[in-house]
Amino acid sequence: MTFSPELEARFARMLRNYPPGRQKGALIPMLLYAQDETGAVTPELVQEVANRLSVKPVEVEEVIGFYSMLRRKPMGKYHVQVCTNISCLLTGGEELFEHACRKLGIGNREVTPDGQFSLEEVECMGACSWAPAVEVNYDFHHKMTPEKFDQLIDSLAKRQ
């Protein structure tokens, strides 16, 4: 498996960041960065990362389900994550999530049929003072309202 030149360069840098013989340290970030390109942690990716870090595939399997951002099946091009944890709950996060379900026509951890959007109810993402918050892929959107949410989705849909 090969990744984009930028990611390959990042991996090469990363491997130097851990003590000699302890390159396994790069495992979790490597999986997350690779997943950004492959869409999911596929069996092929497990084997690839295991080879690159000289670890057993089972050592890779062990972490996949532990870290909630790593996933075995791809999500949408725009992975919409709505926080409903306490600060967001108090400021309408739950209603926003329900609104998002209706707007996108999908439920939690589902993907729209065209593969453009996926939705996930997530735990606190560190935007409590600017709640309720939504993260699309890695972009934060603060103080969301159903109206702002609709605008966001519509603009993303247009972007394709």
Binding site: K56, V58, E59, E61, E62, I64, G65, F66
Partner: peptide, 20 residues
Amino acid sequence: VTALGTQNRGVISEIIPNAG
């Protein structure tokens, strides 16, 4: 041999074998 690992976390954690 290290043929066993642990998958998932929390209450749905389970033991997994090394070859899928």
